[in-house]
Design a protein around this nucleic acid. Structure first.
Lengths: 257, 257
DNA sequence: ATATATTCTGTCATTTTGACGAAATAAATT
DNA sequence: AATTTATTTCGTCAAAATGACAGAATATAT
């Protein structure tokens, strides 16, 4: 099935689970900023998190992976479910706006039964190496772009809140999982991973103490290469130790920065 | 609306959200064991977690509180959402069994559209002071009882897995929240809270080091009373410091046992 | 050669941890 | 009334982890 076909069959109650949406907060890291991939539906001014529906033949995790794949072109990304959202009228108003806009444009809009009924969102966050992503708009979207989590555009539904909660979950998980592995390119420098942790945790970390702790965990390894950064001392490159990383994912690790 | 009326209206698609269930793993602590409150539906041999559906007029959190209230008689319990579950046929087989049993008994059974369609469970865990609970069976249940998490009976659906995941979440959260407050009576002894932590974490903790750490957090306070435990030295009673506790809930606390 | 900006390495006092043993106490037993 | 038993409670010490801090090395531009 072609990508557009796939999404175009949304709202077919025979294929998709009604009342249940999956939202996926896709994080990337670039220019010392944590960014999130957002889409803006046709004719709309406000943005949404990457989202979609669940086919009756798949699990919610598969649906979330699929959403990530549709927008980034990447499979098997690191993906964590962090919370579900459901309350009367959390989506109603903005759905009505979308419906109206579609109708004004002479386009087919989602059926009322999907819009006016109760809507539960199961939310995941996804971590990805920014540099590997090639963004791909969906058939109902006018725009798809990375936004810094510190400067989000106006958001539809409760999606600003969903991103807040995703950040909370990420900040909690960063203590238990070596999250840098997912957000950084395969080879990276100490200042890069240092800045990543500062960005996610929103606080400054003493570089010497940070390095000491990270190295003592044994999860990253110094390479024999350096990166040229222009008029400055060239930082060494590092990479994650896959074995240690897998163990850390499985058993948890404690990184108390 | 009366309690039984409330639950009896399940499966009315005008009132309840289709495809979405809420399951609530209700934990209590008694006799040095962590227990979970389970129900056994009519004519069934296997048990389920406390569960129910979401009214279209309420949030999923309200639904979860309501389920806890129906089974324990208690309101405003400590309740955390930890994960949602959704995959094809996670509930189908056992639902068919229930349907058949209801029909054999000449009772009205849930409509096929609710049974055969996709089912998402939003799962919460609830912590409660065992001694305050008065268990209340639901209208479709033959039994409702506390079971030690270490010796569960045969479970329906994927509920054994759901309980496992609830335990994981609890073990994760115990490091960030002073969970003892919810599971213990207002006044308790050091050996009691010590044993609670050992039980939840599933490992022995040196009593002297445990006490040192717990006291240094300032979250509990020694009282001037002791409890008589028969032929042994009488342990002092302690209570949680409400202010410290509230701050810990809000900002998190770190208790690395 | 010098200036500038950034990376990298090391020390020290303080705090926290983990592993122990021994004294105190309430009731039952002799 | 002394002793035994089971439990609670208090204290010490060496090792490890933490937090605060300063200075040397290096890549290029001037």
């Amino acid at each position: 099935m072609d990508t557009n076909e796939l999404e175009a069959s949304y709202f077919d109650e025979r294929l998709y689970v009604k009342n249940v949406a999956v939202d996926n907060v896709i994080f990337g890291y670039h220019d010392r900023e944590l960014k999130v991939l957002l889409q803006r539906p046709n004719f709309q001014l406000k943005w949404t998190v990457a989202g979609g529906y669940v086919r009756k033949t798949e699990s919610i995790e598969e649906a979330a992976h699929n959403i990530a794949f549709l927008r980034t072109g990447l499979k098997n990304l690191f993906l964590e479910q962090f919370k579900s959202f459901g309350s009367p009228s959390r989506t109603k108003d903005d759905w009505q706006a979308i419906k109206k806009a579609f109708e004004n444009a002479g386009m087919k809009s989602p059926p009322d039964s999907w819009i006016l009924d109760y809507s539960v969102s199961i939310a995941f966050y996804t971590l990805t190496d920014f540099s590997l992503v090639t963004v791909q708009k969906g058939p109902f979207d006018e725009a798809l772009d990375w936004w810094p989590v510190t400067q989000l555009p106006p958001m539809m539904f409760d999606h600003a809140y969903i991103i807040e909660e995703a950040l909370k979950a990420l900040r909690r998980d960063i203590y238990h999982y070596p999250i840098g592995y997912e957000l950084l390119p395969r080879k990276f420098t100490l200042p890069e991973i240092h800045s990543l942790y500062e960005t996610i945790l929103g606080k400054t970390l003493d570089n010497r103490n940070f390095t000491r702790k990270l190295m003592s965990s044994g999860i990253i390894k110094k390479l024999d290469e350096t990166r040229n950064i222009g008029a400055h001392r060239s930082p060494y490159l590092y990479k994650f130790e896959k074995k240690k990383y897998d163990a850390a994912l499985k058993n948890g690790i404690f990184l108390g920065f």
